[in-house]
């Protein structure tokens, strides 16, 4: 099951600089990054090629980080691409808690990454409907 790294961050300058420096030093690549902000602090979510190592490296440097399980599904990079996946989730009453997406270079595909309560059930539903759900290795190697 793929994972992303969630980082607790105070809302102050230099935060991303410190995180990215640690990741660079450990030769870890960032596939995607999102920041959810709540005034004084927020959570930075990182999709890394080596999430477990990245999380350890950040924690070792005193940055509160944790691994979160996610669902990553490959969709078509065209109008309605995401809708075809999201309509299936909706029809099964699955609530997407937090999500982002990115396109894959030199292809007409994209990846939709999200958090849900029941990951295994969600992955099964998407697979049954013919969507390529990415394993951890597949995702990190994109």
């Amino acid at each position: 099951m793929p994972q992303q790294v969630s980082v607790f961050a105070e809302n102050k300058p230099g935060k991303i600089d410190r995180i990215t420096a640690i990741l660079e030093k450990n030769d870890i690549n960032i596939r995607a990054i999102t920041i959810s902000d709540s005034g004084d602090y927020g959570i930075i979510k990182l999709l890394l090629d080596k999430p477990s190592e990245g999380c350890d490296a950040l924690n070792a440097d005193g940055i509160a980080s944790t691994l979160k399980d996610i669902v990553a599904v490959k969709i078509q990079d065209r109008p309605g691409g995401l809708h075809s996946a999201s309509s299936i989730l909706a029809s099964h009453g699955i609530n997407v808690e937090d999500a982002y997406g990115f396109t894959i270079r030199e292809s007409n595909e994209a990846v939709f990454v999200f958090q849900v309560e029941n990951i295994q059930k969600t992955e099964r539903i998407l697979r049954d409907e013919g969507f390529p759900v990415l394993s951890d290795k597949e995702l990190y190697l994109i």
């Binding site: 509160a64 944790t66 979160k68």
Partner: peptide, 15 residues
């Protein structure tokens, strides 16, 4: 200070 080992990566949890 947030205690690292009790951080589960959720904003709503922090709130």
């Amino acid at each position: 200070e947030l205690y690292s080992k009790m951080f589960h990566g959720e904003l709503k949890e922090l709130k």
